[in-house]
Nucleic acid binder design. Structure first.
Lengths: 219, 219
DNA sequence: AAATATTTTTAGGTTTGTCTAAATTTTATT
DNA sequence: AATAAAATTTAGACAAACCTAAAAATATTT
């Protein structure tokens, strides 16, 4: 089944909101998509008829099995293109998202399969987000917020949840990027900020606010 | 100025028809785009208001300066993506076009500039069609139909005007592709078919019908 | 040059996706 | 439990892009 660009955007929007909320509601999705509640209701009736969501009027909605599969396909295309733009075309981190947002709607299975292969079947996109495989399986990873990370264990930065330009600027300043190795030296009780060590003689302190947005994993 | 996918398709359609007809008319464009005459009239009024075409009701139309510039931008995107799909993703010749038709509407100048660069600034797409540069300049090439080619001079295949699957099949059979070197041995008066030599001991005869669609150039 | 055929445009309708404003339902407050 | 507030849906409109069928303009025949 083929979906319009609008339908795909709604499906993707629901998918993303479901990462944080079991059930999604109308206003939330309207905000996510920069549209209005009435438009969301209209589209949800349509997605409901197409049997992609579980929708109870006034009660919210969520993707069903079929809907999730479709969402993962869109996410896969988006993240593979992000990887391409970043790794092959060397585009800046913060410009990659908007363009992938357009490319993701080109939905040839052969294209995506070959792209995946060409890129070397990457498991994570440049933001550290996992790329679903062609069957919709997400690679697993036990990641932890830097604000909750154990002390004195060498960790690897694997993703950053806030992907605004402001955050990018911040990270550039601290010389932190995906795959940067670092170690938490201590945590200050006063405001929860953490002192970290990246490389041999590079120690710095970052606020809890920032640390909450940086995810790391251990090997 | 930003154009919708539909508008871009109409602009591109007019551009292609103008390669063979100075003035394009409603029915011709409707056929090219698989739409109806009434739809073409609607869109042409719109393109006329946007000052992209010269349009005289009942008299046909053509792209003006501005319209041509826009068309060349679309053609550039299309052919760069075709090159990418063919050279990097190793897709079959006949599948490349349909996908490039979708990718071409993603219109970030930075994306296309970087893609061009990444591909090594190619001058011709996999079908041998010229790729406009970022300023809209087309590379020049003095090409000749194989049916009109001089005898016994080594030529290089540079483009094929009929890009159907049927033609691709034909060319595979004859082992002819873009950049194949060949020499016309003789031409038969009876039906205009030509005997050609590709490689050392590979001689074959192809019909005028096919030869008319193969373009070669000499160095 | 009149009649016929072809082409193009206009008129009016459909679908998709959006919106505002009013009505309805659910949730929270007193 | 009644009322106020918030969220959601419905009703009705609008724009883009398409269509069919009828009308108008142009081209071709006789």
């Amino acid at each position: 089944m083929k979906f319009s660009i609008s339908e795909e955007n709604y499906i993707k929007g629901i998918y993303h909101l479901q990462q944080h909320n079991e059930i999604v509601n109308t206003n939330l999705l309207a905000a996510e998509l920069n549209s209005k509640a009435a438009s969301v209701t209209d589209m949800l009736k349509k997605l409901n008829e197409k049997k992609i969501v579980q929708y109870q009027p006034y009660r919210g909605f969520k993707l069903n099995e079929k809907g999730s599969r479709i969402a993962l396909g869109i996410v896969r295309r988006h993240r593979l293109w992000e990887y391409f733009l970043s790794e092959k075309l060397e585009m800046e981190w913060d410009k990659v998202h908007a363009i992938a947002e357009e490319l993701e709607h080109v939905s040839s299975d052969e294209l995506i399969g070959r792209l995946d292969n060409y890129l070397g079947n990457p498991k994570f996109d440049p933001h550290g987000d996992p790329i679903p495989d062609s069957k919709g399986n997400l690679p697993l990873m036990n990641k932890v917020r830097l604000s909750d990370a154990p002390l004195k264990k060498t960790a690897t930065v694997c993703s950053v949840s806030d992907q605004t330009t402001a955050m990018l600027e911040m990270l550039k300043h601290y010389k932190i990027g995906i795959n940067t190795k670092l170690k938490v030296i201590r945590q200050f009780d006063f405001d929860g900020s953490v002192e970290i060590k990246t490389g041999q003689n590079n120690t710095c302190t970052i606020s809890k606010e920032v640390a909450k947005n940086i995810f790391v994993h251990y090997e």
